[in-house]
Amino acid sequence: DEDSERELEKLRKNNASKEEIKEVLKRLGFSEDEAKKLAEKAG
């Protein structure tokens, strides 16, 4: 959803580590696997 998109955008701009991105995604309700895949894509 839009909030998670914004959250990811912010992380990308701040050069967050894949680990940080994954944690945020998991907080947003993604499964471990989904979060890992998305973090890879974002990283």
Rank of each mutant, 00 (worst) to 15 (best):
G29A: 00
L38R: 05
E40N: 07
F30K: 02
S4D: 08
A42I: 15
E9M: 06
E2D: 11
N14D: 06
K26F: 02
E2L: 13
K41R: 12
A42K: 07
I21P: 00
K13P: 02
K26M: 15
E34W: 06
L25A: 02
E5F: 14
D3L: 12
D1H: 13
N14Q: 12
E9G: 08
N14V: 07
L11E: 00
F30T: 01
K10I: 10
N15R: 11
F30H: 02
K41N: 10
K22Q: 10
N14F: 08
E20C: 13
K13C: 14
K36D: 15
F30C: 07
E2N: 11
R27C: 11
E7D: 05
E7R: 11
R6T: 09
S31E: 05
G29Y: 00
E20W: 12
A42G: 10
V24Q: 07
L11W: 02
N15G: 14
K36M: 14
A35K: 00
D33G: 05
F30N: 01
E23N: 09
G43D: 11
E20Q: 10
K22W: 14
L11D: 01
K10P: 01
E5P: 05
R6L: 08
L11G: 01
R27Q: 07
D33W: 07
A35G: 02
L28M: 12
E34C: 14
L8W: 07
A39H: 01
V24L: 13
A42F: 15
D3I: 13
K41M: 13
K26I: 14
G29H: 00
V24M: 14
A16L: 11
N14K: 13
L28C: 14
A35L: 05
L11F: 04
E5N: 10
L38I: 12
S4H: 13
E32M: 01
D33M: 06
K37I: 11
A42M: 15
E5A: 11
D1S: 13
R6Y: 10
G43P: 10
K18M: 14
D1N: 12
K41E: 12
N14T: 09
K10H: 08
S31V: 02
N15W: 06
I21S: 01
D33N: 06
A39K: 01
K37N: 09
D33E: 13
L11Y: 04
D1A: 12
E20P: 00
E20L: 08
E2I: 14
L8T: 03
L25Y: 06
N15P: 02
A42V: 13
K22R: 11
L38M: 11
N14A: 11
K22Y: 15
E34N: 04
E40M: 07
L28S: 01
E34K: 04
S31A: 05
E7S: 08
S17E: 04
G29R: 01
I21A: 03
E2V: 13
S17C: 14
V24W: 14
E9N: 10
G43R: 08
L11K: 01
E2R: 12
K22M: 15
G43H: 12
D3S: 10
E23I: 05
K13R: 12
E34M: 08
R12Y: 13
R6K: 11
E34F: 06
L38F: 09
N15S: 07
L28Y: 04
L38D: 02
E5K: 13
A42D: 10
A16F: 07
E5D: 10
K18D: 08
K41H: 11
R6E: 06
E19Q: 08
A39I: 11
L28Q: 03
A42H: 15
S31Q: 04
S4E: 07
D33L: 07
A39D: 02
E32F: 02
L8G: 01
E5S: 11
G43S: 12
S17D: 05
I21H: 01
K26P: 00
K36N: 14
E7A: 14
G29S: 00
F30E: 00
E32G: 02
E23R: 09
K18W: 15
V24N: 04
K13I: 06
K26W: 00
E7M: 15
E7Y: 12
A35H: 02
R12T: 05
K18A: 13
D3P: 08
L11V: 03
R27M: 06
L28R: 05
S17M: 06
K26G: 04
A39W: 07
E40Y: 07
K18Q: 12
F30L: 07
R12E: 02
K22P: 00
L28E: 01
A39V: 10
R6C: 15
R6N: 08
A39N: 02
I21R: 01
L28V: 00
L38V: 06
L25N: 00
D1F: 14
E34Y: 06
E40G: 07
R6V: 09
R27T: 04
L38Q: 04
E32V: 03
E34I: 07
K26Y: 02
S17P: 04
K37H: 10
E19Y: 03
K36E: 15
K41W: 15
R6W: 10
E20F: 09
K37F: 09
L25W: 00
K13L: 09
K22D: 06
E23Q: 08
N14R: 15
S4V: 15
D1E: 10
R12S: 03
F30I: 04
E19T: 05
I21Y: 06
D33Q: 09
F30A: 01
L38S: 02
K18S: 10
E19M: 04
E9L: 05
E9F: 01
K26N: 05
E2F: 14
E20G: 03
L11Q: 02
S4P: 13
E19K: 04
V24C: 13
A42L: 15
K13N: 08
D33I: 08
L38E: 04
K22N: 06
E23M: 07
E20R: 08
E19P: 01
S4M: 15
K41Q: 13
E2C: 15
R27G: 07
S31K: 03
E5R: 14
V24P: 00
E34L: 08
L8H: 01
G29W: 00
S17G: 05
A35N: 01
N15I: 04
K13Q: 09
